[in-house]
Amino acid sequence: MIVSEIDIVIQKSNRKTVSIFIERDGSVSARVPEKLSDEEIRDILKAKEYQIFKNLAEWTQLNENAVEREYVNGQSFLYLGRNYRLKLVDEKLDGVQFKRNTFFLSKEDKHKAKELFIKFYKDKLNSKIYPIIERYKNQLGVEPNQVKVMELQNRWASCTPNGNVNFHWKCAMAPIDVLHYIVVHELSHLIHNNHTKAFWNEVDKILPKYDEQVNWLKINGVGMSL
Results as ranks from 00 to 15, higher is better:
Pro131Ile: 09
Ala198Pro: 12
Tyr130Trp: 12
Phe199Ile: 05
Val149Asp: 10
Tyr136Ser: 08
Ile129Lys: 00
Ser188Gln: 00
His195Tyr: 05
Pro144Tyr: 04
Trp156Met: 07
Lys170Phe: 11
Cys171Ile: 15
Pro175Val: 01
Asn145Lys: 13
Gln146Asn: 15
Thr196Trp: 05
His180Asn: 10
Ile182Trp: 02
His185Lys: 04
Lys137Asn: 07
Lys137Gly: 09
Phe199Glu: 11
Cys159Met: 04
Met173Gln: 12
Ile132His: 03
Tyr130His: 15
Pro161Cys: 07
Asp177Ala: 14
Asn162Trp: 08
Val203Leu: 01
Lys170Glu: 08
Val147Phe: 04
Ala172Glu: 02
Val149Ala: 07
Phe167Glu: 06
Phe199Gln: 01
Glu134Lys: 12
Lys148Asp: 14
Arg155Leu: 15
Leu190Asn: 00
Ala198Glu: 15
Val142Phe: 07
Cys171Trp: 14
Ile133Ser: 01
Tyr130Ile: 14
Val183Thr: 08
His180Arg: 15
Pro175Gly: 00
Lys197Gly: 06
Ala198Tyr: 14
Glu202Gly: 10
Asn126Glu: 14
Glu202Pro: 08
Glu143Gln: 14
Glu202Tyr: 08
Asn201Cys: 03
Pro161Glu: 00
Ile129His: 00
Tyr130Ser: 12
Val149Arg: 08
Asn154Gln: 10
Ser127His: 15
Arg135Trp: 13
Asn194Met: 00
Trp169Ile: 10
Asn193Ile: 01
Cys171Ser: 15
Gln139Val: 11
Gly163Ile: 03
Met173Ala: 10
Tyr181Arg: 03
Tyr181Thr: 06
Asn166Ser: 15
Asn126Arg: 15
Ile182Ala: 08
Ala198Arg: 11
Phe199His: 01
Ala174Tyr: 03
His168Asp: 13
Val183Gln: 03
Val147Met: 04
Ile176Leu: 13
His195Gly: 04
Arg155Lys: 13
Glu202Thr: 05
Val178Leu: 02
Asp177Lys: 13
Gly141Trp: 00
Leu187Glu: 02
Leu179Lys: 07
Ile133Val: 11
His195Pro: 05
Pro131His: 05
Val165Thr: 14
His168Lys: 03
Arg135Glu: 12
Leu152Phe: 09
Glu186Trp: 04
Ser188Arg: 05
Leu125Ala: 10
Asn164His: 15
Lys197Tyr: 11
Ala157Gly: 14
Trp156Ala: 04
Tyr136Gln: 10
Asn138Tyr: 05
Val178Phe: 05
Thr196Ile: 06
Gln139His: 11
Asn154His: 13
Thr196Cys: 06
Val147Asp: 07
Cys159Gln: 01
Tyr130Gln: 14
Lys128Asp: 13
Asn138Ile: 07
Arg135Ala: 12
His185Glu: 03
